[in-house]
Design a protein around this nucleic acid. Structure first.
Lengths: 189, 189
DNA sequence: TATTTTTATGAACATATGTTCAATATCTAA
DNA sequence: TTAGATATTGAACATATGTTCATAAAAATA
């Protein structure tokens, strides 16, 4: 199962396209493996050569989206000397931008019948970004575990995103930004 | 499908017991509906009369656990006059106690192949508890949406629980308590 | 280009899913 | 206690899942 083998590339591409086509018609939960294979014109046995479940196929997409999250966050850091009290760390707002950019996918990621896998992929993504920043910039009291602290902060942000998702991402990125800034200000006074 | 009908009660009980038996042998994902029905000696068609997926059966259990969460939190509030700086709101620590008490179930709730439904049930549970407390006790700046703020706080706590789960709940409730207290203290200075 | 290695295919099989229906068993309410 | 209401059953059916295997097709490499 060499990832470079042209046959493998072709097969996976066909399956990816088929999934995308079907996703525009109905939710992931109503799509069957047999269906994907029929549309992709790929033998069903071949599917099982590469994946275990249809969810694995979507996971491959989501992997790429996680790379975008990483890249967005890593963009050349434009140091802001005096932060507007109403704005938060410019690196964090990029997370919200990223979610909005891929909201079509995040509607699937946050839908209730989908496995937790994708949630954890997002969690791990934000977790590792925050953890690195927390380790570098903040000096944290000894008694705090960086792991717990990062998990706390990462999931708190996802909490905002869940709330956002539940209104179908109607609020603007800037609203999310302001809400987070205001919440963070509460502790400071 | 009257919930009081003895036949319904009996059928559901048999399915519940069968699921519990099977869960002690293997993970939820490897259990089939047909298997549950065989063990429960219930016709497979009867299963579909009450549930759509095996996950719905587990959801019924989890519903009861969510009631325990609610009750734990609602326990007569023993007002603590001087809060130990290292301890957090005594109501919140009860959440950690609750998780530990039902950790057998939470290992399922947080496992990656399970649907997000249970996560949302927990989220909604903690969300509504916090929201009520936030609305009553804290006076929040106008610009903050109580919804976003509650979602932030609720999911932050679940973030700690995820981190806790990933070490198979090895840390003590008291450790979690201290970590949260320390994290909350960061913003205060 | 020819040979070797690897992947994809089609067919078949046992089992699971999801649904329907008439027949039967069991409960509720009078 | 009985009559009527409703839940359960068993059987059947079409389709999906997950696996195996020999064969064919296509790629890598020498």
């Amino acid at each position: 199962m060499s990832a470079n083998d042209l046959r493998v590339v072709k097969t996976k591409q066909a399956l990816h396209n088929a999934l995308l086509t079907l996703l525009s018609e109905k939710p992931l939960e109503n799509i069957t493996i047999a269906e994907i294979c029929r549309v992709a014109k790929v033998n069903r046995g071949t599917f099982y050569l590469h994946y275990e479940q249809k969810e694995g196929l979507f996971e491959e997409y989501f992997q790429e989206i996680m790379e975008d999250l990483h890249n967005s966050y890593e963009e050349p850091y434009r140091a802001v000397t005096t932060l507007d009290k109403n704005q938060i760390d410019p690196k964090t707002i990029r997370i919200f931008h990223h979610i909005e950019r891929f909201k079509i996918f995040y509607r699937i990621v946050f839908s209730k019948n989908v496995p937790l896998t994708y949630y954890y992929m997002l969690f791990d993504g934000i977790f590792s970004l925050l953890k690195r920043d927390i380790t570098i910039h903040h000096k944290i009291h000894d008694e705090i575990s960086i792991e717990y602290y990062s998990a706390y902060q990462a999931n708190a942000i996802i909490g905002l995103i869940i709330q956002w998702y539940r209104q179908d991402f109607e609020d603007s990125v800037s609203t999310l930004n302001k809400q987070l800034a205001a919440i963070l200000r509460i502790g400071e006074k």
